[in-house]
């Protein structure tokens, strides 16, 4: 059984801000049924680019639900510029930490948030820039490089914990190792 903090359990059993936000003017979606988790984030942003309301719909495990719930609490009241600086580590910290195997749930929160911000600003996020590394979970080398740098990841296992990459068929594990090595080589 996972060792979830009381805060994670609380946010899972009593999630905040669940459901579709009827007057949302920004939406960010990430994940899929196949992946085993997905998050749809709704924002209501006022004319000063301040997030006045946020809600979510999540398919996934307890930590995915808790991360989504925490995210909505964190970003309410922030400006979009402030929200853009929220990291997956902030989400995990807000919950008193996540088991390392579940860090990808916090990454999912950050990803949905970035997409919602881009949606509001009318910026087209290029679908998946970079070279596809993990076919099972559709993770590119650029995403891996970002996560390795941001979180100081050392091993393929770390990358799987944060991005799920390599957690399916395992065919890409060698390639992930190369990407980690390239980041290390850059210093």
């Amino acid at each position: 059984m996972w060792e979830y903090t009381d805060k994670v359990k609380d946010h899972f059993m009593h999630p905040r801000n669940v459901g579709e936000l009827k007057d949302a003017n920004a939406v960010g979606e990430t994940g899929s049924l196949n992946c085993g988790d997905a998050l749809k984030l709704f924002l209501k942003v006022d004319e000063n680019e301040r997030i006045v309301d946020a809600s979510f719909m999540t398919f996934g495990c307890a930590s995915a639900v808790a991360s989504s719930s925490a995210l909505t609490e964190i970003i309410k009241g922030m400006t979009l510029d402030e929200a853009a600086k929220v990291t997956n580590g902030d989400i995990a910290d807000y919950l008193g930490g996540l088991p390392k195997e579940k860090m990808h749930c916090s990454v999912m929160g950050k990803s949905a948030l970035q997409k919602a911000i881009a949606d509001y600003r009318g910026i087209q996020i290029m679908e998946k820039p970079g070279e596809m590394v993990c076919e099972c979970f559709e993770v590119t080398d650029l995403e891996i490089i970002d996560a390795v740098k941001a979180n100081g990841l050392e091993t393929t296992e770390d990358v799987t914990n944060y991005l799920k990459a390599g957690g399916g068929c395992g065919k890409c594990l060698d390639r992930i190792e190369e990407v980690i090595a390239s980041v290390k080589a850059e210093g």
Partner: peptide, 23 residues
Amino acid sequence: VEGESILLMLDKEGICASSGSAC
């Protein structure tokens, strides 16, 4: 819906089962 979430809700009622999902 996802298996682990179901299991935790069952667990709250003292019901023990397992999931075929991965989480």
